[in-house]
């Protein structure tokens, strides 16, 4: 009798755990006004960043951000603008990772989310763009 109860409890617990896991695995919440606002802002900026990725002036960092790699490809008068773009994009990306963690009520996931994004930005980058490898060195894709 006792064993049967134990078995039930165990099965119940496993089921409970499994459903919770499945729920967690299902999807990450990203449909929040904050994420939407940040995404919009990044999308609007992308047209300006695109030629900078292509020319190698700006590269993707290993921590999910962007950084100046070689400004020599950019006309002098626009270099200050490049700095401003990088600063704004970095700020948005940091906010994006934080907001996704927040939207899922898991602030402690921020660094994991950042790491996941870092990898996916690089995976989806176009050939010719630069990214940082695990050692922090610039690599041309």
């Amino acid at each position: 009798m006792l064993h049967l109860t134990w078995l039930r409890v165990a099965v119940f617990t496993i089921l409970l755990g499994a459903t919770a896991l499945a729920a967690a695995q299902a999807n990450l919440e990203i449909n929040t006004p904050a994420v939407a606002a940040i995404q919009k802002s990044m999308q609007d900026r992308h047209a300006q960043l695109l030629p900078l990725y292509s020319s190698g002036a700006v590269g993707l960092t290993r921590d999910g951000g962007v950084a100046l790699r070689d400004a020599n490809a950019v006309p002098l008068a626009q270099r200050a603008q490049v700095n401003a773009l990088i600063a704004a994009e970095s700020q948005d990306r940091a906010a994006l990772y934080r907001e996704i963690a927040r939207a899922n009520a898991r602030p402690e996931w921020e660094s994991d989310i950042r790491a996941t994004f870092a990898q996916r930005w690089i995976d989806k980058a176009q050939p010719g763009w630069y990214y940082q490898n695990a050692g922090g060195a610039w690599v041309r894709k």
Binding site: R69, A71, V74, L76
Partner: peptide, 11 residues
Amino acid sequence: FADTGGLHAGE
């Protein structure tokens, strides 16, 4: 003149 990163340059 230019440095390698292009942060100090003149033309």
